[in-house]
Design a protein around this nucleic acid. Structure first.
Lengths: 305, 305
DNA sequence: GCGCTCCATACGCACAGAGATATCAGACCA
DNA sequence: TGGTCTGATATCTCTGTGCGTATGGAGCGC
């Protein structure tokens, strides 16, 4: 790639003149007087080394050399205009590409509203959403395979080893007991946690979200028992299905009320605790898209319908 | 098409830096010091309105906006470089497109050498050659459907109605008598024209080249007779074939000796006259290609082998 | 012949920007 | 802790060029 020889301003003048084929009109379209235009063209012709127009009195026409240069000049100008517009759109966050990880349990609650709100505001941004549990999201944020994560129970903000990631709580929600409809406790409005002490439990594997898992077992411990986990399942959907078949009961974030199954009842528990849903991102990620997404999350707190 | 906002020099610097990802190396490749390069990039970023590179200590990288701008910048630069080169090639006559009309009788003499010489000198020029007799060539030159004509017996240079066309004689050649090999006159080295007075003639139609036709009949008239035209044919090739079958004799430019037929003999005639082959072009055609072709014609006078 | 249109030329001004040198600041390494 | 590498900043110079106004000159039509 060599040093460019032709100033863009002159090429612009050239293209306009090639369209108008009239110095006066072309100058008017360019918003300048006629003599400067003559100069522009002259300078361009000097640089090219050949005449680009023939000026017979009354008629201006392109030469063969001019016909050769014209399409290249036109392409270059439109390419640059388009490229500049695209770069500005991306730079300002009006366009681009955002990869979002999300916890499966949010697929029916926070996520739809958030996506709808964001898409409404930034229709040219391509959203790449992928379901991931908490721990993989943190790893994915670190290795930059996602830009934003929506997860449950993030590491504490002040954890020393999380210097590169930031989290902000999006919402908190209570836990609910997940019971088979036929279960005696399902008849109550509120279930005291201790009453679940002897029930078999269905839970997610601890690795998929250690802090949430610990919070659940911690709740049980506070109620005076250690839950006996009869079955593990990797999705809340599956957990509910297993509960329906009578394999056990569960404790889950209230979000999963959205999973409507005939044979499953959700009951508030007592004593309760709230679990946090947070949004996480890389602190050093200056992308305006991330900023916009974070702003959208804050602006629409009830997007978690 | 709007006024271009991004100076090409800055885009060039941008592209080079995007390839090197190192200010020092990029500056070296650009042949400038490092601070000016920093300025170029800064100015470009100011105009775009967003950062194009991230400068973490030790590693320079493109931002999303920069990645968006890069291909457009690259395309624009190469387009312009290519377009400029093409325009210069066309302007200088090293490339382009030339339409040449030629008389059929030259297809075996002047033309091959001329084309070979021209192609050798200007391999990037596309030559569009089309066979035309004299009168259509003049019309084609006028309406610009050909750029150069190779023809026999052009109108006189000083003809008042030929102000827009110019002609230059390429070569002159004598006439030869075309006889069946078995013809008694074929036994002679030279044929006196008057001896053909009672022979039937095979000639081209007058319209295809009135001046050549008139020259032939003029020769006969000078020898004291008016030729009896037993047959007309539109190509010299055909004329020779008809002579071979004994349908008559003919008078033709010496070029047609190239048409070798077993039963046809070519004999010089006496008295003789020479016929001119000329190249014609539009006087107002400033194309360097035409100038080059004319120069080639002059430079290789013996291309008429 | 006169005026009109159209383009070129001449001259002047002002500003952007490309280049240089010199210096500074942060990161990293020995 | 000091040296090195990297990029940013400051300041200055100078050229290019973009634009203006004023003017010239060639065709063309009335």
């Amino acid at each position: 790639m060599e040093r460019p020889e032709l100033p863009l301003a002159q090429l612009h003048a050239f293209v306009v003149l090639a369209e108008e084929l009239h110095f006066g009109h072309a100058a008017a379209r360019l918003g300048i007087a006629q003599p400067p235009l003559s100069q522009q063209i002259r300078r361009l012709e000097d640089k090219v080394g050949h005449a680009l127009f023939t000026r017979e009195p009354g008629r201006v026409a392109l030469t063969a050399a001019g016909r050769e240069l014209l399409p290249a000049a036109r392409r270059a100008l439109t390419d640059l205009a388009d490229g500049l517009a695209a770069a500005r759109a991306v730079g300002s966050g009006r366009a681009g590409h955002l990869r979002i990880g999300f916890a499966a349990s949010l697929a029916l609650t926070v996520l739809p509203g958030l996506l709808r709100a964001f898409r409404g505001r930034f229709p040219d941004v391509r959203l790449d959403i992928r379901e991931m549990t908490t721990a993989p999201q943190i790893a994915a944020l670190r290795d930059k395979s996602i830009d934003v994560g929506l997860l449950r129970e993030p590491p504490a903000d002040d954890a020393s080893d999380e210097a590169e990631l930031a989290f902000r709580t999006v919402l908190t929600e209570p836990f609910v007991a997940v019971l088979p409809s036929a279960h005696p406790l399902a008849a109550l409005r509120t279930v005291r946690l201790a009453r679940l002490a002897d029930e078999p439990f269905v839970l997610l594997p601890r690795e998929t979200g250690p802090r949430l898992h610990d919070q659940i077992t911690g709740l049980c411990a506070a109620a005076g028992f250690t839950p006996w986990v009869a079955q593990r399942a990797v999705e809340w959907q599956t957990v509910c299905a297993l509960v329906e078949t009578g394999l056990g009961v569960s404790l889950a974030p209230a979000s999963i009320r959205r999973i409507r199954l005939k044979g499953v009842a959700f009951r508030t528990v007592e004593p309760n605790a709230r679990t946090r849903v947070a949004v996480g991102w890389r602190k050093d990620d200056l992308s305006p898209l991330v900023a916009h997404l974070l702003a959208t999350v804050s602006r629409d707190p009830d997007s978690a319908r």
